[in-house]
Computed example of a mutant assay.
Amino acid sequence: MRADLAIDAQWRESTKPGNNGGCVEFAQVGGYVAIRDSRDPGRKPPIFGADEWDCFLDGVTKGEFPVPEV
């Protein structure tokens, strides 16, 4: 999928913004999910298929990704 298709997407903010004022935004684009940093909305967003997104959310729920230390 081409990242430029996400340009007109309806972006939504995550419910947990970071301590630095930035947060992750996501948008559904067709059958895909695009994500971006709210502080850099012009950057080309990575886009994931439904299966990839489901696996990512499952990993987050299970704590498979370490929280970076500031």
Rank of each mutant, 00 (worst) to 15 (best):
M1E: 06
R2P: 12
A3I: 10
D4P: 00
D4A: 08
D4E: 15
L5V: 10
L5W: 05
A6T: 13
I7R: 15
I7G: 01
I7F: 03
D8P: 04
A9K: 11
W11E: 10
W11I: 04
E13T: 14
S14Q: 07
S14Y: 03
S14R: 08
T15W: 00
T15M: 05
K16H: 15
P17T: 14
P17F: 06
P17C: 11
P17N: 11
G18N: 13
G18V: 02
N19M: 09
N19E: 11
N19G: 14
N20F: 09
N20C: 05
N20I: 07
G21D: 02
G22W: 03
G22M: 04
G22V: 09
C23H: 15
V24A: 09
V24R: 01
E25F: 06
V29Q: 00
G30K: 09
G30I: 02
G31C: 03
V33D: 01
V33K: 01
V33T: 13
A34R: 01
A34P: 05
A34T: 05
I35R: 00
D37Q: 10
D37P: 08
D37G: 05
S38I: 06
S38R: 05
R39D: 08
R39W: 03
R39H: 15
R39E: 10
P41T: 09
G42R: 13
G42K: 10
R43C: 07
R43M: 10
K44C: 12
K44I: 12
P45L: 03
P46G: 08
P46N: 11
I47R: 00
F48T: 02
G49A: 04
G49C: 06
G49N: 12
G49F: 02
E52Y: 07
W53D: 03
D54Q: 11
C55I: 05
C55Q: 14
C55L: 11
F56Y: 07
F56E: 03
F56D: 02
L57K: 15
D58Q: 15
D58S: 15
D58L: 14
G59I: 10
V60M: 08
V60E: 03
T61M: 08
G63Q: 02
G63I: 03
G63A: 03
G63K: 04
E64K: 14
E64P: 00
F65Y: 14
P66R: 09
P66V: 11
P66W: 02
V67Y: 04
V67A: 09
E69I: 13
V70M: 04
V70R: 10
